[in-house]
């Protein structure tokens, strides 16, 4: 098993989270926004795993399972919204759906 400093594990989680955040801020295609959200959730889960391993407790892994469940539920609703957006507006541009008027 690896014996790396805990900070490096958390650093990796931070880097992945920052990449995902940049993607959410920059992209206009809603599929890429959802993809970046997945990257962010995965990075949060990585931080849980690293912290759980630091103290040798299974709690971090349990919380990762909850993050996983949440990500699965989020992505299914999100992709259904993508289909609906494409059906109504005939585009995947998130800016089009910013008026909140159906």
């Amino acid at each position: 098993m690896a014996s790396i400093p805990m900070e490096q594990g958390l650093l990796l989680a931070g880097v992945l989270f920052a990449i995902g955040l940049t993607g959410v801020l920059v992209r206009r295609n809603i599929i890429f926004v959802l993809l970046s959200l997945e990257v962010m959730l995965n990075a949060a889960g990585l931080a849980f795993i690293v912290a759980g391993y630091r103290w040798g407790q299974p709690d971090g892994q349990v919380l990762f399972l909850f993050v996983l469940t949440m990500a699965a539920a989020e992505v299914s609703v999100g992709l259904a919204l993508v289909l609906q957006l494409h059906r109504v507006f005939k585009t995947l541009d998130v800016d089009v759906a910013s008026r909140m008027r159906g």
């Binding site: 805990m6 391993y53 299974p58 709690d59 892994q61």
Partner: peptide, 20 residues
């Protein structure tokens, strides 16, 4: 201060299930 992760073995699936 830098905390080194323990080089110990993996967390057993039994512990994970019991906690979950």
């Amino acid at each position: 201060t830098v905390h080194h992760l323990p080089g110990a073995g993996p967390i057993q699936p039994q512990d994970l299930g019991a906690t979950l």
